[in-house]
């Protein structure tokens, strides 16, 4: 299990944290990885804080316990930081990617977490989403940022695979497909460390 990467997604009900985890899992699977993607279920409603998870490994995964010490945390909504401990279980060397216009340094100062050794990345996924898809759906651009930080998946292959999946899902709305693909690509390129 040394090659196992565990990821936790934070979002609000309706923002697509579950879908993002499933899409990321499927993309990684089609590139030959073993994956798990699962949401945390509870009495969620639209807007309530929710979590979802991924496990990725080149070897089969038999773990079925909860993810408590993720290697990467993805935060779809920066306002969650005030109410949810998005850093929970993160150790030195682990990464967090936050959807915000702010630079990683600003976040570090605001939260006073310098010296914890957690790598902070930011990307304006909402801004990208509004520009490319026309709506604030930050989950697909955040996928691009995650691919960059995870570092073991080829972005071109991910985009190809994602395109195929979106084509199936949005047969009647081709404009949505191109917008999503552009958004993923931009977030991959624009994520800041």
């Amino acid at each position: 299990m040394d090659n196992l990467t565990e990821i936790r997604w934070h979002g609000r009900g309706g923002q697509g944290a579950k879908t993002a985890a499933l899409l990321f899992g499927e993309a990684a699977m089609s590139l030959g990885q073993h994956i798990q993607a699962f949401p945390e279920y509870g009495p969620e409603r639209m807007g309530a804080p929710v979590q979802s998870f991924n496990r990725i490994s080149p070897e089969p995964i038999t773990l079925h316990c909860g993810v408590t010490n993720p290697d990467i945390v993805v935060v779809l909504d920066p306002t969650l930081i005030a109410t949810v401990d998005v850093f929970q279980g993160l150790d030195k060397g682990d990464s967090i990617i936050i959807n915000t216009e702010k630079a990683p340094g600003e976040i570090e100062e605001e939260l006073n977490i310098k010296g914890m050794g957690i790598k902070i990345y930011t990307v304006d996924a909402s801004g990208i989403s509004k520009a490319e898809i026309g709506r604030d759906i930050p989950n697909t651009p955040m996928l691009g940022a995650l691919v960059k930080i995870y570092g073991k998946l080829n972005i071109e292959h991910v985009l190809e695979d994602m395109k195929k999946k979106l084509e199936k899902k949005f047969r009647s709305k081709p404009e949505v497909i191109d917008g999503n693909i552009r958004a993923i690509k931009r977030a991959y390129e624009e994520v800041k460390s």
Binding site: L22, H34, I35, A37
Partner: peptide
């Protein structure tokens, strides 16, 4: 299968 742990967990 185990509820949510497997029923809602996507895997290969």
């Amino acid at each position: 299968t185990d509820g949510f742990i497997i029923s809602h967990c996507m895997a290969n």
